[in-house]
Amino acid sequence: MEEITVQFMLNGKAVRVETPPAFTLLRLLRERLGLTGTKPGCERGECGACTVLLDGEPVNSCLILAPQVEGREVLTIEGLADGDKLNPIQEAFIEKSAVQCGYCIPGMIMSATALLDTNPEPSRDEIKTAISGNLCRCTGYTKIIRAIEVAAERIRKR
């Protein structure tokens, strides 16, 4: 099928990329833009591993078609750190040992980012709700929830 051109803001930079029209945003990121931090876990919107922010909202990138991002803003895990300087959520995930196999972690951190961007003082239940669409099979979520709490405290203190 003929490819189309899509233009959008990706991690703060304008990109213009050719894509088959039926490509999902997930496949576009991974297969055309080399951003493999966004993970396929089920490719039908059931696991959250492919979560990215679309205009600031967390979405399953496996459920968004590439042409839908035209003119919009996409933030992926690769766009969080400022060079070598990690963002507070990433730092807290390391410090609180919230990472095991790590495959769900980019999606988990993107959901946490969306939460803390809009709600800097979330309750534990709000944190759990925010990541309830992100499955993790390794950690039991305990240290992930703790890491998000720690990150929230740090962001507030700034």
Partner: peptide, 18 residues
């Protein structure tokens, strides 16, 4: 802290399916 955590939280870890 895990020696592989930094790469995992930045999306830099390359799994075989990446």
């Amino acid at each position: 802290p895990r020696i592989d955590a930094r790469d995992k939280v930045t999306g830099r870890t390359v799994y075989s399916t990446d």
